[in-house]
Design a binder for these strands. Structure first.
Length: 427
RNA sequence: GGAGAAUUACCCAAGUGGCUGAAGGGGGCGGUCUUGAAAACCGCUAGGUGGGUCAAACCACGCGAGAGUUCGAAUCUCUCAUUCUCCUCCA
């Protein structure tokens, strides 16, 4: 959520910045119009309330002195009606303003590449050379099915499209990967958390999914309840501190969690229909940080660097790009995506997204701390995948495949696989 | 799922319609005394959000949340949330 006072005082700047995110200047003007109307109504209503309070005190005094106060009471009945009318108008304007404001994305940081499409993302760095194959590299879904470790037929029957059964060594590989990630993240100072996998609407609003997420039916909401299946562990992790004043001494606070992420993938019909890339349910190890404002940009680099380290340890080639103003998620002021090399597709695919949301989520979720002067300040929140587990499996299958269809297990994962070095065909 | 109870400021807690913008403790902070400290005593300790203002002054709202009754609500009514106890059910 953007600070209304800030918008009011820097309207032109806000228009210019949000224009890079496809927000029209008229939208800001509309918002400012609501704001002006709202404040006008507040002044009127509160003036009358002050009067009412004043006269009520006099009525109380009169009653105590056993004097008659019926004139004043009659007058206050009238004033009460006026207040009620004004407050009804006020509520409506506030609602309109709120609805509009809730749809405004974060202000992009100055060094975010400006573009109205995803074209224009800047490559920050590249790691590893894509492997040269002396045979035609296969897609991970072909490899997985042949090896008997991924079963898309069964999941289609039991659940539907965009699900998967991991079988045997596949399930074991998935587990090895997330245990490796969690251990590494813990080593880097992230506290391991096992959060709820369903959250209420206040939480979905706090991290910025609602209201848009609801409108575009991007997730799975539980019928007859206020609960939604989490689309990412970021939601329960960040909302852990919703409506709290955090201890400034303890900042930055770092959380990591493994969780499934549930997404409807509405609007991505026909895209990545095969394999592990785009599922309704996938595991992800998430990292979240709460920092003081002055720490958040360094924190973004450190989250990203840490996610990269995981890939370096696995030995998977990747590159890091900074997303454009319009390609970033709603809440982000800046996002670095890490994309891994997928040999069969011959291109890089996203495996991690690391964002600094500055105070945008903190304002929605009311997460504050007291600065040296005892003043309440909003924290900055950051999130990054460290990393997407299913996509890691896909990357490992494709990058470490052998001509016979077997898969070499990256060394760092072998201890997590009971010493196994290779995945071969299972029954 | 059923029944009962609770929810007041940093913590405990009083308070059933009007001098309660919330008694009293504790804790914290400051002071007196002391070489210093302890004890004792004295004082301060509702923060926050919104409005207002160049900035202030000031105003509104705040007793779990929301709605209602009333000229007036911490106090009455309703809905909801959370916690505790007892059933029930379960991993």
């Amino acid at each position: 959520m953007l600070d209304m006072k800030m918008i009011r005082q820097n309207a032109d700047w806000v228009k210019e910045k949000l224009a890079t995110r496809n927000i029209k200047a008229e939208t800001i003007d509309e918002l400012l119009g609501y704001d002006e109307k709202r404040r006008e109504l507040i002044v009127k209503s509160e003036g009358l309330k002050a009067k009412k309070n004043d006269v009520s005190k006099k009525i109380a005094e009169a009653k105590r002195n056993k004097e008659d106060a019926s004139d004043a009471i009659a007058e206050m009945q009238q004033v009460g009606k006026e207040v009620k009318e004004l407050d009804e108008q006020l509520e409506k304007v506030e609602q309109d303003q709120q609805d509009l404001a809730a749809h405004l994305p974060n202000i992009p940081a100055d060094d975010v590449p400006v573009s109205l499409t995803e074209e224009g993302a800047v490559e920050l760095r590249k790691y590893g050379e894509p492997r040269k194959f002396d045979f035609e590299p296969k897609h991970h879904w072909d490899l997985g099915e042949k090896l008997g470790i991924l079963d898309f037929e069964a999941s289609a029957k039991v659940a539907g499209s965009r699900f998967v059964y991991y079988m045997g060594a596949g399930a074991q590989l998935e587990r090895a990967i997330y245990n490796f990630y969690l251990d590494q993240n813990a080593k880097a100072g992230y506290k391991e958390v096992l959060p709820p996998y369903m959250v209420n609407s206040a939480s979905m609003f706090g991290t910025g999914q609602f209201p848009k997420f609801k409108e575009t039916k991007a997730g799975f909401e539980i019928t007859d309840s206020d609960l939604t299946m989490i689309p990412t562990a970021e939601v329960p992790l960040v909302n852990y501190y919703r409506d709290e004043v955090m201890d400034a001494e303890k900042l930055p606070v770092k959380f990591t969690a493994l969780s499934p992420a549930f997404r409807s993938e509405a609007g991505s019909a026909g895209r990545d229909t095969r394999g592990l890339i785009r599922l309704h349910q996938f595991n992800k190890v998430e990292m979240v940080q709460f920092t003081k404002p002055e720490q958040s940009w360094d924190a973004l680099e450190s989250i990203t660097a840490h996610a990269e380290d995981l890939l370096k340890m696995l030995g998977i080639p990747y590159h890091v790009i900074t997303l454009t103003t319009s390609d970033m998620s709603f809440t982000a002021a800046m996002t670095h995506d890490i994309e891994v090399w997928m040999p069969a597709q011959g291109r890089y695919r996203e495996i991690s997204s690391c964002s600094n949301t500055t105070d945008f989520q903190a304002r929605r979720a009311h997460i504050q701390y007291r600065d040296e002067n005892g003043k309440l300040q909003y924290v900055h929140t950051l999130n990054g995948s460290g990393l997407a587990v299913g996509r890691t499996v896909a990357a490992i299958l494709e990058n470490f495949q052998n001509e016979d269809g077997s898969i070499n297990i990256p060394e760092v994962l072998q201890p997590y696989m009971g010493g196994k070095t290779k995945i071969e065909k299972e029954d």
